[in-house]
Design a binder for these strands. Sequence first.
DNA 1: GCCAACGTTGGC
DNA 2: GCCAACGTTGGC
Length: 166
Amino acid sequence: MPRTADRRYWLLKTEPGCFSYEDLLACPDQTAYWDGVRNYQARNFLRDDVRVGDGVLFYYSNAEPSGVVGTATVVRAGYPDHTALDPAEEHYDPKSTRENPIWYMVDIKAGERFRNFLALGDLRHVPALEKMELLRKGSRLSVMPVTAAEWKTVCAMGAGKRIRPD
DNA sequence: GCCAACGTTGGC
DNA sequence: GCCAACGTTGGC
């Protein structure tokens, strides 16, 4: 594991009907490649910034409700997304080639499934999370950075701990 | 299904 | 490079 000070945190979006936390748990070694990101800003994070050992918040979008279901750990840093090369794949992109891959992916391994599913509507009411990228109006990125403080808060909430001792 | 907020495309 | 049209995301 990298030193704590070097560890970064990310939120990765998936639609549960497409790839759920259960799907991740069912993978060999509970590890899967995170494919299908087709947005340049999100791609840049995967290619340039996500590193082995980083923490991942596993987020369900377009869900009822949407929210964070648990955590994962990055076990392989960015490498070309081969699903972009396959015409049979949903996210095939003819502009991407083996020589000049456009899209990147990482591998993640399941961490902890939260005792409490953290619905988006609940996260919005947490003062410590008010600057979280996910909660910004119009936020659409499928890969976004999370601060260490936000990570700590979200994981504590997921574990069922009280955030504000009021 | 609605629609706001983006991102991408392509004519000029 | 501008920008209108169009497509996508994703909460609600």
